[in-house]
Design a protein around this nucleic acid. Sequence first.
DNA 1: TATGAATGAGATTTCATTCAT
DNA 2: GATGAATGAAATCTCATTCAT
Lengths: 203, 203, 203, 203
Amino acid sequence: MARTARGRATREAFREGARRVFTRDGYLNARLTDIAAEANRSPALLYQHYDGKEALLAELAEDFSEQLQAKIAEPYRSGLDPIAALREAIRLFWLHYREHLAEIIGITQAAMIDPAFAARWREIHRSATELIATGIRSAQAAGYCPDLHPEIAASALAAMIEQFCLTWQYQNDSPEFELTDETAVETLWQLWGHAVYWTDPLQ
Amino acid sequence: MARTARGRATREAFREGARRVFTRDGYLNARLTDIAAEANRSPALLYQHYDGKEALLAELAEDFSEQLQAKIAEPYRSGLDPIAALREAIRLFWLHYREHLAEIIGITQAAMIDPAFAARWREIHRSATELIATGIRSAQAAGYCPDLHPEIAASALAAMIEQFCLTWQYQNDSPEFELTDETAVETLWQLWGHAVYWTDPLQ
Amino acid sequence: MARTARGRATREAFREGARRVFTRDGYLNARLTDIAAEANRSPALLYQHYDGKEALLAELAEDFSEQLQAKIAEPYRSGLDPIAALREAIRLFWLHYREHLAEIIGITQAAMIDPAFAARWREIHRSATELIATGIRSAQAAGYCPDLHPEIAASALAAMIEQFCLTWQYQNDSPEFELTDETAVETLWQLWGHAVYWTDPLQ
Amino acid sequence: MARTARGRATREAFREGARRVFTRDGYLNARLTDIAAEANRSPALLYQHYDGKEALLAELAEDFSEQLQAKIAEPYRSGLDPIAALREAIRLFWLHYREHLAEIIGITQAAMIDPAFAARWREIHRSATELIATGIRSAQAAGYCPDLHPEIAASALAAMIEQFCLTWQYQNDSPEFELTDETAVETLWQLWGHAVYWTDPLQ
DNA sequence: TATGAATGAGATTTCATTCAT
DNA sequence: GATGAATGAAATCTCATTCAT
């Protein structure tokens, strides 16, 4: 499959078709035939490249999370101080989400009805959360946020950033004010940074 | 329908059946006949009480959010200081979510495929977020978290608590450590509290 | 059944309810529950008086055709000359149809889906047609319309009057001109009279 | 769909299947699966060609009335005198009805339950009636049938011929005498002709 | 590689009809 | 005599998926 140039073009057409349809209608409302139509190919052909809608999404999802992980890790490797690196990571996350809404919608929705997909996704999620937990542990080593459970706090922060990005970037049809990239990133950064970099627990 | 005791019992049986099925299979995977079977009633009878699966969920959802709003508002009215009230509100939220997983799952999933439902839900959501924004404005009046945009920050905090509760309470089938109520609430509270009650912005 | 005054009132309520619903929605679109609702009675009760929607219609239909036959026969018995009697019969037919639209709609529609009902109706119809055929035979005895097959011609004239009345009295929602009783009867009479009272066949 | 020979054959199979089922069971009693079975195809496939039973009938009905109009108009264009043309038109009408019983049954029955279909049908009907009215006006110009309202008389004559054809050609399961084409046409012609070509009104 | 045609498996929904009180 | 509650049986319709070319 996809040995020839034409084959590769078709494969790419299906990926792009799927991304357009997922963004427009959501993954669950997307019919295989819609995707094929959007790709200007026949539904039957899709089965010669993928096992179905779900397999196509799985491929998109893998690429998506690989790229995301790579992007997020970068700032921490480049010698920035932790707080500056956090801001940059948040910025990259926000931008990556906007560019890959289709994948996020697909992943979120597929996980809701398909336990196997949900399991795979949780696994990916866990490793992403682990990154955040590591950051918290570093902060704790420097005396910040004592007693915070790193994994649990990490999952809360992950929940915040993911859901915030989704809320503001998807089907946010009646926004009374326009949310700029700058404000979004700044807000998340201030919340996250202060949520972690403190020394005296609330009583 | 539901003018006699028997009718009311049936209505309640459908509600409970739906809640069980939603929790077990999810809303989208739930078939009307599953709900009826779970309620020990015939599918046809369900239509004499509700317009369908969606209408049944809508009723559950309205009750759910009404009750939640009432619970959350309580601590702030009872004279606690804001930080203590916040902790109590988080605790009530966490517990309400656990008791009403079915509704949350249903709402989340229905909003994914049904724009009308999503719209209604966003509206409820907005009013909940407004409560949080009010809390942030009070904090700002006391000199905390200057420059934070109240509505936007509120939506991030709402995202955090909702998604965190959902993650840990639904289909969290392989938890390497048990998360106690105490730890969950404490973690959310410390994060949220410090995210808001600070005076010097990160630079 | 219907021994008491209350029982008789209920029976009458069902008849009137059915007539209203048949006129409004047609017999085929009428649900038993609509009829019951219109009669302010429960559907279950209808079964204690009739075997169902069809049996109720059958009763209405019998009354309807009995009355019609009686009315139509009258002018011929009262010593009018045949042509004047024809006019009067047409007039009575036209008026009876208007007063009993419900029955006509019901009969027409029921005959379309129920062979047993259709058979019964054809029988009634045949005896009505026989009346017309008798009129034609009398005309032939007086030298008119030689060679016309009485039964066949009668069925054509019956078709004309019935269908004409139905067309103009039922769901005739966009009439560019108002059709008065006078014009309707006059038109049918002139057509029918000349169709029968002639001596030279067309060549 | 229907871009290949196979597709076109299937489409035709559905049309023929529908016509057989409509004639046998009537339109209202016809289930979609009956039509599919009669066409040796699956019900699902029917939906790839038509929106449903109703749409299939609509297509048949359009073809039916187009062809009928063309046939009826022909005699009047070919230079026959009006009375001879009338006879030929009646003959063609009678034969067309026999060949297309399925369509007539379908149209009649669909119009009974579906207001939209009924409206469309009334429109076609009106234009057919208009043809007859034109004939009446010509006759009046030649001094015949003064004072007859052309449209109203036309609708009566249309009612006669349609209902007569339907009565004798559909479900006429117990005819004591066989009705030949010749007799049917002759009877209608004599009635219609004399109904119009007279000079002295009945008094 | 590509496609038009075809199908099977279900889920929803509607109603007449019966049951229990 | 009367009713609210309950059900069974069917028909429609939608899709993912496969077949034949």
